[in-house]
Design a protein around this nucleic acid. Structure first.
Lengths: 197, 197, 197, 197
DNA sequence: AATGAATGAGTCTTCATTCAT
DNA sequence: AATGAATGAAGACTCATTCAT
């Protein structure tokens, strides 16, 4: 077996553990996720987890990093940096919202990990930096063209992020509160109206 | 000692326990909050807690209920049901946002409990019903007067709630992201622009 | 129940735990002494141990302190500070040797703990200070009267301690090596001849 | 590759493992010496150790045997069986004491292993038999010539061994207890005075 | 023969809950 | 009614040993 496939196998095992952890945290919460159960779901012994992650805390942190990477890549899917401000806004946040809707597990995971003391606020900021790069350019352009309110990027981003995140959560956890279908475009319009100049 | 003072004393003790629990959860997270420490902070024995709350889970649920009641009463502070739609909107959500800002402990608590598996989604809905009553009237009026987008109340409420909540969180946990002061009115304008027709 | 008896009860429990630990370490070695087994032998739950000792390490250290106190008090039993140098020497080390012989458990315990990394060399020195006080006076007197070799106290003490300790060990663990009875006085004579001027 | 070199390589590997184990036990104690760490220090895989030693227990026993062989050979270095009793005594125990002083690792190792339940008292006796052969002759001669006290060999040997061993330990672990240099000859004189008739 | 990833039994420690006082 | 000592089940983590490559 060559190095390539060795790496592959290890990556697979590591990935299996991350997936198992993700499933369990999303379903039961960060508590109710003993290492023994992670091991069972990852089809490995408990000790094996510790070959890939030093402690449970590190496992959770690595999971968070992995999650934000996946999320960022979804947001940037088909993103055209040369498109107009409004189009870019709808593309980015549309991708984000659809991802949250389509992957309830990842949405729940993000919620759990965002409130977890296992992850520091600094780590959270670092993890989200890649995502923020595209947004900063978008908002700078928008403000220059006077299409977007002249407020700090962090405000515009935080409020859009907060509203879409909360919507996705409510739709998943309390669907009966929304008897009629909610169109994603309605929400994006709402977010755009919020920040537009 | 008469019944009155007994009840009083009990209420005090119960309240002390709730306060101690609130402090500990907000500071350390739901997990680093053993009953023995709650007892210590509430200046009572561990067994005493169980005279007021059957289990730790119930304690947390009661705390959540208490928290939402306080929050609702803050939101309704000086609220004039006969005022105009926009004024009512600014009054309600201004109260909400200022409460979140001024009581970081309660904001952190709300975040912890909102993500806790100790509280079911149903309980969360029930707890927020009182708050939603005023909002439903406000939004109904707004839609009738064509001041507000014709979207389900739950959508309009969720997104406003989500954006203001996330803003308060970020301001408290990552203040360095906001070098210039953020005016509450700017945020309320942003929320109003989002939902206005 | 008054404070006196409360203290008593706690002391009893603490003592029980120390005794159980002593028995197990002496019999099986410092390893093979899991907290669960200590608890079983002390007739208490595993958690109870942690009300009296913060960690297993501290339990072992406290046990060592206790052991040296008992040993010191045995050595000083009937010790007459105003007696002659040789008499005092025979009294002190005779007491010591008889204690080691009569309490094989404590002898084994001392051996285990003396080699344990759970106890630092500094702690060992501190624990033995009380014993050394009497010896220092004895040796100073002896040297002044030119009854004892003019070597550092630490040398005279260490070698006497070492030889008697090793003898007690061998007698207990390899009795077949000593087909004829070994008289304690022979050993004390041997030690006295070693250090006498 | 022929049998000779195979054997040679194996011996080397076996030796490496023993050395690695010796270093780790002496430095950290018998307990902080996991097989994986032994393997790392011996520059081999963990599984390889099991080609040379059936279990960890056997590894430790073999290490003890090896250690006593080395110790015995040091003691017999330049030993002249035809020399006088006193000279032989000083030669043997001088060698022993210098070895203990010059190889603190081996001294620490001997202490750890002497207290370890991994090695039975029978094994300890067996391992020390070679050393005792020379001593028996020496003591027999000494007693015949009435130079040495008429006590069992085991007593005379045990007490000399115990005092020199303890001295070497104290000098290495608590050097500050001996502000002035301690001359080995002073200690040998002391031991000789102890046993001489 | 050598490797080191995988295993899971065993260890220390925490903490919700009970109950004797 | 109030207390807090006692409990033991549950959880994170370690490590001797095995075995597929």
């Amino acid at each position: 077996m060559n190095v390539q496939s060795d790496t592959r196998r290890n990556m697979d095992k590591r990935q299996q553990i991350l997936e198992a952890t993700a499933d369990l945290i999303a379903e039961q919460g960060l508590h109710s996720c003993p290492m023994a159960m992670v091991a069972k779901h990852a089809c490995c012994g408990a000790g094996t987890i510790y070959r890939y992650f030093e402690t449970k805390e590190e496992l959770v942190q690595q999971l968070f990093l992995h999650l934000t990477e996946v999320m960022a890549s979804h947001c940037m899917n088909g993103y055209d940096e040369s498109a107009g401000v409004k189009l870019r806004f709808y593309s980015f946040w549309g991708n984000f919202y659809r991802y949250m809707l389509e992957k309830p597990r990842d949405r729940a995971l993000m919620e759990q990990l965002s409130a977890s003391p296992a992850i520091s606020e600094l780590q959270r900021e670092e993890a989200l930096k890649p995502m923020n790069k595209a947004l900063t350019m978008l908002l700078t352009d928008g403000k220059q063209q006077q299409l977007i309110k002249n407020l700090p990027d962090a405000v515009l981003t935080t409020m859009t992020f907060g509203s879409l995140t909360m919507m996705a959560k409510k739709l998943q956890l309390s669907p009966q509160m929304f008897p009629q279908a909610v169109q994603p475009d309605d929400l994006l319009n709402l977010c755009w109206d919020a920040i537009k100049a």
